[in-house]
């Protein structure tokens, strides 16, 4: 019952966030300087006649009072209509849909690689010898501080043009996914590894860990069976970081490796001032954030049942 109520509250909160996001996109459209009708017809250079503009305004409801436009805006979004791209002249949902698979593939590969690296390094080095911890700490710092785009350039310089191990551009089978995924994963691994190791070292000092050791448990069993589960919780709560790092990283990575994907779609849309596409991607990211957050909250309850009462 409490869990159900908790989920209910979370859904409501998520809906609130999406409503806010939709409102924000409306405000952006409304307050952007320039005539949206001109943008629809094809930018300033198109020089459309006043009649054409008036027709477009009527068609898009741009001549209505703001609250009617707002209501229409919300209603369109609820129905899954994010408008039409100024540049591509196709529905935004279609434009995004065509690119989604490639980005999801990249994001999942990057997240899985990053998480695996972080967990492995943290488990292996937390509360070990000084030099080992120092080494891991330095590696994490460098990885977390390296911008994705430069990491990509270095990876390309070494592995594509130097050693000729992997292709330099995307979309050519699994081998072409290796460098982009690594490029996305390393900074994530740096940040997560740092958080995880600190949290693991804190947990390993807890009395229940000493108790477990005093029962005759080996070090590996103590780390995996007792400590890891506790140490994972901060990672799970970093939803905002995860979504941001993967989507933001995808924008850069796709551009750098000239891969298909939502990120590249977004960059070309920003360059072309194609507002509907930009806002569509932003709304989508908010939706992803809300959904992931909900999943994370449930996951969190599963990891730490004590929270059930608190919720």
């Amino acid at each position: 019952m409490t869990t159900l109520r908790f989920i209910g509250w979370r859904l409501l909160a998520g809906a609130g966030v999406l409503w806010g996001a939709a409102t924000l996109t409306f405000l952006v459209v409304h307050f952007t300087p320039g005539d949206p009708a001109e943008a629809v017809v094809g930018g300033e250079g198109a020089a459309p006649t006043p009649e054409v503009l008036a027709q477009v305004r009527a068609e898009y409801g741009l001549d209505l009072p703001w609250y009617q436009q707002y209501a229409a805006h919300l209603w369109r979004i609820v129905r899954g209509d994010f408008g039409t791209s100024y540049r591509l002249h196709t529905p935004v949902t279609q434009a995004i849909g065509e690119q989604a698979a490639a980005t999801v593939e990249l994001a999942l590969a990057g997240a899985a690689t990053g998480l695996t690296l972080a967990v492995a390094v943290a488990l292996a080095t937390a509360r070990r010898r000084r030099w080992l911890r120092g080494l891991a700490s330095a590696a994490e710092l460098v990885a977390a501080s390296t911008p994705t785009f430069w990491l990509g350039i270095v990876l390309l310089t070494v592995f594509s043009f130097g050693l000729r191990l992997f292709p330099a551009t995307g979309g050519q089978g699994p081998a072409s996914l290796v460098l982009p995924a690594l490029c996305l994963a390393l900074p994530i691994a740096g940040v997560l590894g740092h958080v995880l190791r600190e949290s693991l070292e804190e947990v390993l000092d807890e009395p229940f860990i000493v108790s477990a050791r005093a029962r005759g448990l080996g070090d590996a069993a103590v780390r995996v069976r007792h400590a890891l589960r506790h140490a994972m919780t901060p990672l799970v709560t970093m939803t905002g970081y995860w979504v941001g790092a993967l989507l933001g990283g995808a924008v850069v990575t796709e551009t750098l490796f000239t891969r298909q994907g939502i990120g590249r779609l977004l960059v070309s849309a920003v360059n072309a001032k194609d507002l509907p596409v930009v806002l569509g991607v932003v709304l989508l990211s908010a939706l992803v954030y809300v959904v992931v957050n909900l999943v994370v909250d449930l996951l969190y309850l599963a990891i730490d049942p004590r929270l059930k009462e608190a919720a």
Partner: peptide, 19 residues
């Protein structure tokens, strides 16, 4: 440890794995 010497730490709230 555990087999021939049992060890009870203070405060079971923190000495038993809470999860």
């Amino acid at each position: 440890r555990g087999a021939r010497i049992g060890f009870v730490l203070q405060d079971a709230l923190v000495s038993l794995d809470p999860l």
